[in-house]
């Protein structure tokens, strides 16, 4: 499944203190070109909610979410 989307940058958001997951993805998105994709992994339940919410409120696109055991994988596309 995951090989269908090519990520420009991979990001590990596991086990971070508040508010680092959002801070890290917000920083990382500046390092991919518009149209580029970040693949992020997380295990904390709140991050499942935070990353899609962040993508929505910043006008980026949540391409896909996938669960592999304990780890959740997100693909976020930079739109602007």
């Amino acid at each position: 499944m995951s090989e269908t989307i090519k990520a420009d940058l991979e990001l590990n958001l596991q086990g971070l203190m508040c508010p680092l997951p959002v801070v890290k993805i917000s920083q990382a998105i500046k390092n991919v070109p518009v149209g580029g994709v970040i693949e992020a992994t997380a295990t904390d339940p709140g991050v499942m909610a935070d990353i899609p919410a962040w993508a929505k409120s910043t006008g980026n696109e949540m391409l896909k979410v996938e669960k592999e055991g304990k780890v959740i994988r997100f693909w976020v596309k930079r739109l602007k």
């Binding site: 801070v23 499942m48 909610a49 935070d50 919410a53 929505k56």
Partner: peptide
């Protein structure tokens, strides 16, 4: 900018409830 993003993401989290609910519950 990041403080605004964090606040707005928290608000969007409520609007997004249906989207993440299942994953959230699974992680719990």
């Amino acid at each position: 900018e990041i403080l605004v993003q964090l606040a707005d993401a928290a608000i969007a989290r409520e609007e997004n409830l249906e989207f993440f609910k299942d994953f959230y519950l699974e992680q719990i």
